[in-house]
C-alpha cells in the first residue's frame, strides 16, 4: 500500500517537474546552450531549482516504491505523466499541441498501460 501511494506521488511530481524545467530553460539558441554562462544561470533559476527539488523528492518516493515492486511493473506506470505534462504544458506554457501530437501521446500512453497491466 505504501509502495503504491509512493509510486503515484512520484509519478505526478515527475510530470509537474518536467513542465517546471521547460518553464526554466525556455527555448535556447545554440550560442546559449554551448555557453557556460547559460548553464550557470540555470543554477540560480527559480523554475529550474523547483524542478530539481521536485526531482529529488520524486526520486526518493520512487526508491520507496521500487523497493517493493518489480521494476518492469512500476516503471511503465510513469507513462500517465505524459498526459499530465501535455495538459499542464498547454495551459501553463501555452504549447501548441497538434492533433497528431495528441494522438501520438495517447498511443504512447496506451502502449505503456498495456505494458503496466499484469
Amino acid at each position: 500500500m505504501t509502495a503504491i501511494v509512493a509510486l503515484w506521488a512520484s509519478i505526478i511530481l515527475n510530470g509537474l517537474a518536467q513542465v517546471l524545467l521547460k518553464k526554466g530553460v525556455g527555448h535556447s539558441n545554440d550560442s546559449q546552450s554551448t555557453s557556460a554562462q547559460w548553464w550557470m544561470s540555470l543554477l540560480t533559476n527559480g523554475w529550474v531549482l523547483s524542478w530539481g527539488i521536485s526531482f529529488v523528492v520524486a526520486t526518493a518516493l520512487w526508491l520507496i516504491a521500487l523497493s517493493k515492486l518489480d521494476i518492469s511493473y512500476a516503471f511503465p506506470l510513469l507513462s500517465t505523466s505524459f498526459i499530465f505534462v501535455a495538459i499542464i504544458s498547454r495551459v501553463f506554457l501555452k504549447e501548441v499541441i497538434s492533433w497528431p501530437r495528441w494522438a501520438s501521446i495517447l498511443v504512447i500512453t496506451l502502449g505503456v498501460i498495456l505494458i503496466a497491466e499484469k
Binding site: V25, G26, S28, I71, S72, L78, F82, R90, R101, G111
Partner: peptide
C-alpha cells in the same frame, strides 16, 4: 528540453519503458 516543446520531447522518453522492461 531547451531545444524542443516539452509536450513533444517528454513522450519520447517512453522508450525508457521498452529498454527497462527488456532489461528487467
Amino acid at each position: 528540453v531547451s531545444k524542443h516543446d516539452i509536450s513533444y520531447i517528454f513522450p519520447i522518453t517512453a522508450l525508457n519503458y521498452v529498454l527497462v522492461t527488456l532489461g528487467g
